[in-house]
């Protein structure tokens, strides 16, 4: 059986979901025997490759660069997974959504040049940080803040067995 081409992506989130992913510990060895990690913040690959089987997307969509990347991911990936509460609901990054983008940026950067207000070296901040399914169709949702390593493993095992993993009960818990 050919190895699964697995990717992980980090958008507007705290990287806690990726930390939880690393908490798979020795299970990572089993994962590595069945999947190639073809793109991830923890590997040194700059371009999102073609023909990815599964991608775990951590974080909400908060700026134009992330929105572009998501669209590229959707075009090049078979199964897109919203990985953790920020990707599923917007979560903590969405706390800014009731506020005006400019007010938020001014509060952070003060007067003068404010990065993110317009397109530039820093990508433009979107008016709201949204769950990824607000931007692209999403195939699977893996909630949790962060999802525990056990929950991630249960989900991945389903995928590795060639099934469409279905989380139920306590494994669907937000927060």
């Amino acid at each position: 059986m050919p190895k699964i081409r697995l990717a992980t992506v980090w958008l507007s989130g705290c990287s806690g979901c990726h930390m939880s992913f690393l908490d798979l510990d020795e299970r990572l060895i089993e994962l590595a025997s069945k999947a190639d990690l073809v793109y991830s913040p923890i590997v040194d690959i700059k371009e999102y490759p073609a023909e990815v089987d599964v991608v775990l997307v951590e974080g909400a969509v908060g700026n134009t660069e992330q929105r572009r990347l998501l669209e590229e991911i959707r075009a090049k990936t078979r199964i897109v997974v919203a990985f953790g509460d920020c990707a599923v609901t917007g979560n903590v990054p969405s706390l800014r959504n009731p506020l005006l983008r400019e007010e938020v940026l001014r509060a952070v950067y003060g007067e003068g040049e404010v990065p993110g207000l317009e397109e530039g070296a820093v990508p433009k901040l979107l008016p709201q940080a949204l769950p990824i399914h607000a931007v692209i169709p999403v195939d699977r949702f893996l909630p949790g803040c962060p999802p525990s390593a056990d929950r991630i493993w249960k989900f991945l095992q389903g995928l590795l067995a060639g099934k469409r993993p279905e989380l139920t009960g306590a494994d669907l818990r937000f927060g």
């Binding site: 979560n91 959504n97 909630p143 669907l172």
Partner: peptide, 28 residues
Amino acid sequence: NHICAFCVSNGHCELQDLATELGMDHVT
């Protein structure tokens, strides 16, 4: 703005429990 991770009732909230019970994996 129901943000479980940020809430004082995270882990003992009836709304959160109902989402789990009814299999709500995201909000459409």
